[in-house]
Design a protein around this nucleic acid. Structure first.
Length: 956
RNA sequence: ACCCGGGUGGCGGAACAGGUAGACGCGCAGGACUUAAAAUCCUGUUGCCCGCAACGGCAGUACGGGUUCGAUUCCCGUCCCGGGUACCA
């Protein structure tokens, strides 16, 4: 009886579906466990072998937890709104809803092939009105909330109105604009428009004008993390700053909690660091400097190093800073204006690419608050308007940028750290002892920080200040394929639609171009604008910021997720996905969760307890080398009509005389024309589909069929083969290095495919796709099968009693597999299974009572195989619901083994030691050994130490 | 430039807590079965040296030092690769 994986897998997939084997209930006496994958964006390209890596890992873990007696939630869905579908619609005229549905169907087919244990009855699609109804609802709650710093949480905006009516805003400084101050009387006197404008400055979802990353080519605004090096992440189009009316999320209010929360979650250090870098919390002080001849005007700077106050040699303000205009002296007006024009002419990209030292003196002077010295005020693009106060005090002896600036413009440098400053480069140390620093003299810099702040505060010219690098998140897009905002505009006031109006469904459009004023496509829908509805739509991350909650209660029409459901499932116990979402999705999800917690809709404030980042599977590209000939018309012609490809080994010798000769003779051979003279030859490497290459050898027939222009291609072979070149690159359709999992599943079966992807290496690690070892894994599973059924003899398994040796192998194997699975080390888990099967094969063990337990242990890895065997052994029910076998420890103890002994590290000798021996027993054995005994008599050791079951150490 | 990871056979990778480095798989070599092939099984496989042989010797986890009886593992320095961030004051 043969192992026919194809029939077996089809059969069980059908049965599992029919029986709803993966349906999970919210009611169970079992403990819960929530395993989640980052849901995919259903792109048109479908899945390649890299995508399922994380899904397989999470599936193994979910199935494992199920066998361990947990009620496991393991759902899947689609992040279905997004730019590519809209781009596709523009290019092909197919509505995003249609192409998205097609893509989802394709993804689903591919995933089903691999037999994931997803509970598809809980599937969510962010573009489904039943889903985005709640995305809109949560948005309205954000709109309806503000962050009360005194309570440290989000509360209803209504409460704020009551504070204002009673006390004005003295106690609740405006986060959007600190200059807004009013009393209760003033508030009550404001008209409705004014009041609403003020409230907008407090709301967690707010509308404002601001500099945004505008991408002309995509016709939309991008979030900071969607812009890489001045170009769009998607498509690489240039991005410029533009003032636009935008919706924002006030994520900065959560900066501190997002940072602190990292301590409570199990993310990798790298991930935590990326997030904390992004949040970028820094401690320092804001200091006000008087400006010479401008009484009443103050220059406020932010510094993390108030201890260096006496090392200030000049001030720098950002070109956009309002004081530039105000303080520039008449004499400097012309050069300053020229400089500002220059700065404006530089795009973000140019600034990033070439960091030139530029700047201009304003002609104004600040006055040092302690020394009274006049400090020149400069403006330069190296100071950013958006961070801190947009102005700095420059300390060239301690800051590299300030130092370079001083050097460039030949400004004097004051040394406040003595020998620690060598005059050649700035020294940013905090350990040096201060000099030339008045009341700070003699102090170590890091200690001087607090003292300086204290003094500044006493004098009323400075305050302690915490700054964040993180900005509020832009939350609107001038696009069609996203959630509409449930907002109408009346007399310039944004009003929330009533909950009963949700979902506000996306209307159908015929074209996706921008509206008359550059707004989103919705501005072209008369029925939409007639209702004065917001024409922006929400960004891609809106729907993905809370989907993990919807899975818990996916069909609820009353609320986004019932309290009972979220209380039961709580945090995601294990979240698996790529690192690319480190600062986007993960931060937004964390913020939304904290917000929903604040407002009392859920009872946990961190969404993901543990995060594992799966590595990328890179593509292993293959190249063919097309021969190109210049300087010979005939050959050029021939070469065009009949492309000639040179094998990789020969192509690599390009330029050598050998290469030339080989190519020449081969080409003559191909064209059978003795008169051909070769001109200059060269080769061009071209990507070739990896699926028509076996290892490095090209299937030349398949290649000819691959492209019509290669139909009569000729090859210059080496040893009868065409050898391709190879390179590791990102896996991408464009590079022809993608491998479709379906092909492997049909060749080896889903079980083999799953195990092989795991066997490739640690899940967290990136690695190039390599098909070499899949045979080995397939061989293993067939070997396991043969313990039950023989091709010739048929059934070979028996109900005989097992021997101790057999139990020993079994339990050792199960223990290793269990430990490996717990540690998320699935590659070693597969190895352990292989070793176990090898050993049982050696023992000729065909005993049901032993093998059956191993079958349960392999279930998470190879579910179809396990289920089939489970039934052939005559068991009722599904192996998916079996109980993970308990390890009988008594079989794990090995009798004795030879171990080396180190006596004071010098003598080596072997002793028989029981593996489970105690310290006392070890000492007894050591003392019983003749050679050791002799040595001990002469040396009188202090003690005999028993180290790690492996070595005996005698300390003298 | 800064901050994180990481460098182990021909290859992918093991080694959980400093304790016989190279598990498991691939590849390769040899062999068995077969008319033959496929499939399967067995043996060997870090390098060098010695030998009839060995549970023989030496070196060995990027490189150079250190701690330790003992280091792939811990510490310091150097080099290389991968990832992240970037005029954030």
């Amino acid at each position: 009886m043969e192992y026919n994986f194809s029939d077996i897998e089809k059969k069980w997939q059908r049965i599992w579906t029919e029986q709803g084997a993966y349906k999970v209930s919210n009611e169970s006496i079992k403990p819960k466990y929530y395993v989640l994958d980052m849901f995919p964006y259903p792109s048109g390209a479908g899945l390649h072998v890299g995508h399922p890596l994380g899904y397989i890992a999470s599936d193994i873990f979910a199935r494992y937890k199920r066998l361990k007696g947990y009620n496991v939630l393991h759902p899947m869905g689609y992040d279905a709104f997004g730019l590519p579908a809209e781009q596709y619609a523009i290019e092909h005229g197919i509505h995003p809803a249609v192409s998205t549905a097609d893509n989802i169907a394709n993804f689903r087919r591919q995933m089903d092939n691999i037999a994931f244990s997803f509970d598809w009855s809980r599937e969510v699609k962010t573009s489904d009105p039943e889903y985005y109804k709640w995305t809109q609802w949560i948005f309205l709650q954000l709109f309806d909330s503000w962050y009360d710093r005194h309570q440290g949480k989000a509360v209803p905006i209504e409460w704020l109105v009551r504070y204002f009516e009673k006390d004005g805003n003295a106690r609740h400084q405006c986060p959007g604009d600190a200059t807004i101050r009013f009393t209760a009387a003033e508030w009550n006197g404001f008209d409705r428009r004014r009041q609403q404008d003020i409230l907008m400055n407090y709301r967690l979802a707010y509308c404002g004008y601001g500099e945004v990353n505008w991408c002309e080519a995509l016709g939309t605004v991008l979030a900071n993390d969607e812009v890489i090096n001045g170009v769009s992440e998607r498509g690489g189009h240039p991005v410029v700053k533009k003032k636009l009316r935008q919706w924002y999320l006030r994520i900065t209010d959560y900066a501190d909690r997002l940072l602190e929360g990292l301590a409570t979650v199990d993310f990798s250090d790298a991930m935590k660091e990326m997030q904390s870098n992004w949040i970028g919390k820094s401690f320092g002080a804001e200091i006000d400097f008087e400006i010479l001849n401008h009484p009443g005007k103050k220059l406020r700077v932010y510094t993390t190093r108030p201890d260096t106050l006496f090392g200030v040699d000049f001030m720098v303000i950002a070109p956009e800073h309002e004081l530039v205009e105000a303080v520039t002296s008449d004499g400097q007006r012309a050069p300053v204006e020229e400089y500002l024009t220059y700065v404006k002419s530089r795009s973000e990209r140019e600034r990033m690419a070439e960091k030139k030292i530029t700047g201009c003196f304003t002609g104004a002077y600040a006055i040092h608050p302690f020394s009274g010295l006049q400090i020149p005020i400069w403006t330069s693009e190296y100071v950013l308007a958006g961070y801190g106060t947009g102005a700095i005090m420059a300390v060239p002896c301690g800051d590299e940028r300030d130092f370079k600036f001083a050097r460039h413009f030949d400004l004097p440098i004051t040394n406040i750290i003595g020998d620690a400053f060598n005059g050649e480069e700035a020294n940013p140390t905090k350990e040096a002892v201060l000099q030339n620093s008045d009341f700070l003299d003699g102090l170590v810099m890091k200690d001087a920080i607090v003292i300086a702040i204290k003094k500044l505060e006493d004098k009323g010219i400075g305050t302690r200040k915490v700054n964040f690098r993180m900005r509020d998140a832009a939350f609107s897009r001038q696009r069609y394929w996203g959630e509409p905002f449930p907002i109408t505009w009346k007399d310039g006031i944004a009003e929330a639609l009533p909950e009963s109006a949700l979902p506000l469904e996306l209307p159908h459009v015929e074209k996706y171009g921008p509206g008359p004023e550059g707004e989103g496509p919705l501005a072209n829908v008369p029925a939409w604008t007639a209702r004065r509805l917001e024409t922006n739509t929400m960004p891609g991350y809106a729907g993905s910021s809370w989907y993990f909650l919807r899975y818990m209660d996916p069909h609820n029409t009353e609320t986004f997720c019932s309290r009972a459901a979220s209380d039961y499932w709580g945090q995601v116990d294990l979240y698996i996905g790529g690192t690319e979402h480190a600062v986007g999705h993960l931060l937004y999800s964390r913020m939304w969760t904290k917000f929903l917690f604040d407002r009392g809709w859920i009872s946990h404030d961190e969404p993901f307890k543990r995060l594992v980042n799966q590595g990328m599977i890179q593509g292993s590209s293959r190249f063919v080398y097309r021969l190109e000939v210049k300087g010979s018309d005939l050959l050029e012609q021939l070469a065009r009509k009949t492309p000639v490809f040179v094998s990789g080994g020969i192509a690599a010798m390009q330029g050598t005389p050998e290469f030339h000769d080989l190519v020449e003779s081969a080409v003559k051979d191909i064209f059978e024309d003795p008169n051909i003279a070769l001109g200059e030859v060269a080769v061009t490497p071209l990507h070739v589909d990896v699926n028509i290459v076996d290892g490095l050898e090209l299937d030349t027939e398949a290649f000819r069929k691959w492209r019509s222009e290669y139909a009569d291609a000729e090859f210059i072979l080496e040893e009868g083969k065409y050898i391709c070149g190879q390179e590791v690159e990102k896996m991408s359709k464009r590079l022809y290095n993608t491998v479709n999992p379906n092909d492997l599943v049909s060749k080896y079966g889903a079980d083999t495919f799953r195990m092989y992807e795991m066997f490739l290496g640690p899940v967290e690690q990136s690695k190039p796709w390599d098909i070499k070892g899949i045979e080995g894994v397939h061989r293993f599973i067939r070997k396991f099968w043969r313990l039950f059924f023989d091709e010739v003899k048929g059934k070979v398994w028996t109900t005989q009693k097992a021997t101790d040796a057999e139990w020993k192998v079994l339990y050792r194997t199960i223990k290793k597999v269990e430990e490996a699975t717990d540690r998320f080390s699935f590659n070693t888990g597969v190895s352990a299974l292989m070793i176990g099967v090898n050993e049982l094969t050696d023992l000729k063990c065909h005993k049901k009572e032993v093998l059956e337990k191993l079958v349960i242990a392999i279930t998470p890895y190879a579910p179809h195989f396990a289920e089939e065997i489970w039934h052939l052994l005559g068991n009722a029910g599904s192996v998916l619901d079996a109980l993970y076998p308990a390890v009988e420890e008594k079989y794990l103890v090995e009798s004795t083994k030879n171990y080396p002994i180190a006596i004071n590290g010098k003598t080596r000798h072997e002793l028989n030691i029981a593996l489970d021996a105690t310290q006392q027993q070890v000492e007894d054995i050591v003392l019983a050994d003749e050679i050791v005994q002799k040595w001990l008599e002469g040396n009188k050791p202090k003690k005999v130490v028993y180290v790690k079951n492996k070595m005996i150490n005698v300390v003298v």
